[in-house]
Amino acid sequence: MPITWITADQKQRLLAAAGFILNVVTVATQLYASPLYWKQPYHNSKLSGAEWVDELIKGYPRIWSELGMCC
């Protein structure tokens, strides 16, 4: 059953509203997915355990203050 009681102006407004909603959904999807795409390695040391702690202590002079420790 065709809808004949909708005017051309109403059709244009419905299409504009649908386009706006589609645009909002697209932008929201891009914003939600962007952290998944732009990941940067955080813990990228090949060392583990005591070797990793030793690297932190010797390689970063400010590590003591960052950890809240006294020299």
Rank of each mutant, 00 (worst) to 15 (best):
L31D: 02
V27S: 06
L15H: 12
V25M: 13
I3R: 13
L67M: 14
S48W: 04
G59F: 02
M1Q: 12
T7P: 00
Q12M: 13
E51Q: 11
W64L: 02
Q10D: 14
L36M: 13
Y37K: 14
G68R: 00
K58G: 09
G68S: 00
E51N: 07
A18I: 07
W64F: 09
S48N: 08
A28E: 05
L31C: 08
Q40H: 07
T4N: 11
C71W: 08
L36E: 10
M69C: 07
L56M: 14
S48R: 11
H43D: 08
T4D: 09
A50W: 02
Q40C: 03
A16V: 10
T4F: 05
K11T: 08
Y32H: 13
L14T: 06
L14D: 13
I57A: 09
V25Q: 05
P35E: 03
A28I: 09
L47N: 07
C70R: 11
G59A: 01
Y42M: 10
P41C: 02
V27I: 15
I6K: 08
V53G: 01
H43Y: 11
L67K: 09
I21E: 12
Y42G: 03
P41G: 03
V53F: 03
V25E: 05
V53H: 02
W38K: 13
G19P: 00
S45Y: 03
G59Y: 00
I3M: 11
A33D: 07
A8H: 10
G49M: 01
L36Y: 14
S34C: 04
K39P: 00
T26C: 13
A17E: 15
Y32I: 11
C71K: 14
C70G: 05
E55I: 01
A16S: 15
A8E: 15
W5S: 14
I3T: 14
L67N: 03
V25Y: 05
L36R: 12
Q10T: 13
I57F: 07
A16K: 15
I3V: 15
E66Q: 08
C71S: 10
T7G: 06
L14M: 15
Q12H: 11
P35Q: 05
Y60H: 10
L47V: 01
T26S: 13
L14A: 14
E55L: 04
N44T: 03
D54A: 14
T7Y: 05
L67S: 05
W52G: 00
V53M: 06
A33W: 11
A18H: 06
L22I: 03
A33S: 10
M69L: 15
P41R: 05
Y60M: 06
Y60I: 08
T29L: 14
W38D: 11
